[in-house]
């Protein structure tokens, strides 16, 4: 019997992105540049996070016309973002045939208490997380892929590093716990007990784990791979840089060769000027996108 939308199909698809770079694009032309540079997928949106941050207002799912135009422009998978908890936007993206949905804190949340029940969809979801508890809650809701939240649109890697290190540290703490302490561990981090047990057994998250939020240079991408990311999302970092084509190519190379400093030095040479970054101290706590999500 033929089966679609199963967990094997969702999780298996996420595995195909590993060791790859997924790039935010706002036009079909940008999508083409991303594909030519070797992106494994593109994220279709109307404004990159740096512009959402600057312009303010309510940030929503992109217009279906734009998403369709981007889907027609490239042969690689196309992802798109929905607001946290916005089931209708997610159904629209599924109807459009988008390959992966990002339930994203970069857009303005639609629900201040609940995330989408992602098990009800045939299309796989990726969600952001700052720590192990948040990651496992999202997996419990059906997310087939996790990414760090970082702080999108800042070009500052510090928050993505913090989130990746937090998740990795919590996993290693969990690995050292006797089984009779797992329930209390699950309670303390607010995670589903059954998934905590799986993490202990595997020694890692049960789904693909990417870095996102603040990647602005090839070295940033390599750093996240060194810290254990399976791959990297780059949002504003490419198309807010002076030479997107070069930056995109260099970041793809950096993810492949993250463990070879000689190659990293070479690909970091000719990238043009990266996006201007933001110091976290200049962003008020209530303006931090990572605080969105529950």
């Amino acid at each position: 019997m033929i089966e679609k939308g199963t967990w094997v199909i969702k999780d298996g698809f996420a595995n195909m992105f590993k060791n790859g770079v997924i790039m935010d694009v706002t036009t079909p032309e940008q999508a083409q540049i991303a594909e030519d540079a070797g992106a494994v997928a593109v994220m279709a949106l109307e404004r990159v996070p740096a512009d959402i941050r600057k312009e303010g207002g309510v940030a929503r799912m992109a217009n279906p016309r734009l998403i369709k135009a981007i889907m027609e422009a490239v042969s690689i998978p196309v992802m798109a973002k929905v607001r946290i908890g916005h089931i209708a936007e997610a159904r629209i993206l599924e109807a459009l045939g988008v390959d992966f949905i990002d339930e994203s804190e970069v857009l303005t949340p639609a629900d201040d208490k609940y995330h989408i029940d992602k098990t009800k969809f045939k299309i796989p979801f990726v969600c952001g997380a700052r720590d192990l508890g948040e990651a496992l809650r999202r997996i419990g809701e059906g997310a087939a892929m996790i990414r760090t939240k970082g702080e999108a649109g800042t070009g500052n890697i510090v928050e993505a590093v913090k989130h990746m290190r937090t998740i990795m540290t919590q996993i290693s703490q969990l690995m050292n716990l006797p089984d009779d302490q797992l329930m209390t561990f699950a309670k303390n981090i607010g995670a589903p007990y059954e998934i905590v047990k799986i993490v202990k057994e595997k020694g890692r998250l049960p789904v693909v784990n990417f870095a996102a939020g603040g990647v602005a240079t090839p070295a940033d991408a390599a750093l996240m791979m060194m810290l254990g990311a399976d791959g990297v999302f780059v949002g504003s970092g490419i198309f807010k840089s002076k030479d997107p084509r070069k930056m995109a190519t260099a970041i793809v190379q950096a993810v492949l060769h993250y463990d070879d400093p000689t190659i990293l030095a070479k690909v970091s040479e000719d990238i043009g000027e990266p996006m201007k970054g933001l110091d976290m101290a200049t962003i008020a706590p209530e303006e931090r996108l990572q605080e969105r999500g529950w």
Partner: peptide
Amino acid sequence: QVDSFEVDIPLDLIGAPPYRCIFIR
């Protein structure tokens, strides 16, 4: 991706039973 699927297919070279083939895009 919405059309990706898994299905059992008989494969002569590996014999019975049919193989669970996972097709992703």
